[in-house]
Amino acid sequence: MVNLGIGIPTLVANYVPPSLKVFFQSENGLIGTGPIPEQGMAHPLLTDAGGRPISALPGACTFDSAMSFGLIRGGHVNVTVLGGLQVDAEGHLANWMIPGKMVPGMGGAMDLVSGAKRVIVAMQHAAKGKSKIVQKCALPLTSSRPVDLVVTEMAVIGFSGGKMTLQETAPGVTVAEVMAVTEADLFIPASVPEMKL
């Protein structure tokens, strides 16, 4: 069971082969979310966590928000992919507010990071020239539990042995280019393979 956040993470569903038989959960109360319905086929009472129309696959089920977050906090969600504002060297994620500027609220993000078995952050490596991979998050944390993996348009970063490690680079991106836009101390192994797309 996989929960995808709004934004870049939503795109993940487009790349999952049906043979994997993944159940996608939407925290507003659905397991078995399907693609955006065709024009004229949307149902006003079938929506994603952003309130946009979606479809439900055969075998889908619906439930209330207490059940939905019981699934999330209870460790029944295998993977969540979330957006991020900052991730730091210890794997801490900040993704719910910029004090004084933007206070959207945490929605389900804090529960997802606390409860999902594996937490993956999918975000841009930098915003307006400023690295989002920082030594220590300046923004309020989403959880004290560190994330497992960060995927950006430039790199895949893991935390094996508690050390922020460059695992892969995007095609055509050099290690030096990644380091130039990474504020955090990033461990670079002897060989860094290229992402397989």
């Binding site: 939905s68 977050f69 206070v103 389900g108 944390l141």
Partner: peptide, 30 residues
């Protein structure tokens, strides 16, 4: 602002005669 899972569980507790709940969500955050 309350984490969504905490919000629904606080309401559930209120409806079920519980004084509250213990959740790991939010530990070490604002």
């Amino acid at each position: 602002l309350v984490p969504q899972g905490t919000l629904v569980e606080r309401i559930r507790a209120g409806g079920c005669g519980l004084g509250g709940v213990l959740t790991p969500t939010g530990v070490g955050t604002m």
